[in-house]
Design a protein around this nucleic acid. Structure first.
Lengths: 199, 199
DNA sequence: TCGCCAGACTAGGCAGTGTCTAGAATCTAG
DNA sequence: CTAGATTCTAGACACTGCCTAGTCTGGCGA
């Protein structure tokens, strides 16, 4: 599938690229297929060869967003340093991404009415798995696994909430960084964190 | 302003009510002014007398959502019990609201491109003030105020993140409740919580 | 080599939408 | 009772997403 450039070149890639630009410029509501086609220099029906729906395009954008964010977090996690230091980097990466891609985050975390399934959901699962990977340094027993899951969820929820507050401009960037620093301090000092990361 | 029923009765109220129904039924995208007018039994231009814009209607809905959520949290906070117990109730109220009004939450926490201002932002500020009120049992000195602010932000961020994860069906309702319980435990056991609520 | 065909793309049309306008209907204040 | 302001109607316009028929093109098998 998705073989070679055909008539236009590689329209699909151009569409996705321009779509991200429009998303940044004028939000989700400002992203119209016809305007997108206009910018790409093709007829208004052309995008339909690559995206059956407007929603299909939005889903694709969201999925790519998840993948990019996942990669950012992976990179932060690969950095040398203590667990605390790397956790800080991860938090900053998350919050930075939310700040610089506010509209895209809306797309990624828009409330779905249907049941969770499909590639977007899978991409989200893959994102959250990143947090899990960092916590399995001691994978001893079911107790540890349960603790790790709760620790992970708590950390993710805090990051996500901070990201939302930042993207909606309810708090500033510095406040956001303080929140994640505080969150990490509190989490690592807690009983939950102590059980997971002794020493 | 907003005196008495005129031709129709009180259209504005009917529109807002029906709009919330449509929001719940088919999300933000499914909320059209013309369909709304149809359901209210008025011509397609009638809503314009009460809402200059579609966005004005959405803003009004968001503001009302903030006010309702604020009232819910106030009620939870008024309940008798220890601080921990009331904090639990607040967390549950927040998360329940997000679960039952997912599309509305999207509206309330959609990323804004502009600077924060206007009635929606004010309503959001009022919401977050509720958390502050619960924390000023000992208002001694600047240090305490700073701690209270950080505590509040951390708590709010966690609630908000949990709400998003729940509304997007990334986690279940029971997981969400565990997250807020864990968050409260961790926060109250922390140094930050200890400084604020000694004893 | 050549015909053929799946896929990319064009162009037109349709229903639906948000917004604007002029004007009728209605309420309210003087 | 009249005059003005407000609510509402009806029509128009530009724009949107989606559908359809038909054209073009690149690659593959005979």
């Amino acid at each position: 599938m998705a073989s070679k450039p055909l008539h236009h070149g590689n329209l699909r890639a151009v569409l996705l690229e321009q779509a991200e630009v429009m998303l940044r410029e004028s939000g989700v509501d400002g992203l119209s297929l016809r305007e997108l086609a206009r910018r790409a220099g093709v007829s208004h029906g052309a995008p339909r060869s690559h995206f059956i729906d407007r929603q299909a395009l939005l889903d694709d954008l969201a999925e790519r967003g998840f993948n990019r964010l996942t990669e950012n977090l992976r990179a932060a996690l690969r950095a040398p340093g203590t667990f605390r230091e790397r956790a800080r980097l991860v938090g900053r990466a998350y919050v930075d991404f939310a700040f610089e891609n506010a509209a895209l985050m809306d797309l990624m975390f828009a409330a779905k009415l249907e049941a969770p399934s499909g590639p977007i959901h899978d991409a989200a699962v893959r994102l959250f798995q990143v947090f899990g990977e960092a916590l399995v340094q001691d994978g001893t027993g079911r107790r540890a696994a349960d603790d790790a899951e709760r620790f992970k969820l708590l950390f993710v929820a805090t990051m996500q909430g901070t990201a939302t507050l930042l993207a909606t401009r309810r708090i500033g960037r510095m406040q956001a960084e303080q929140v994640i620093d505080d969150a990490i301090d509190v989490l690592l000092a807690s009983e939950l964190g102590g059980r997971l990361l002794p020493g």
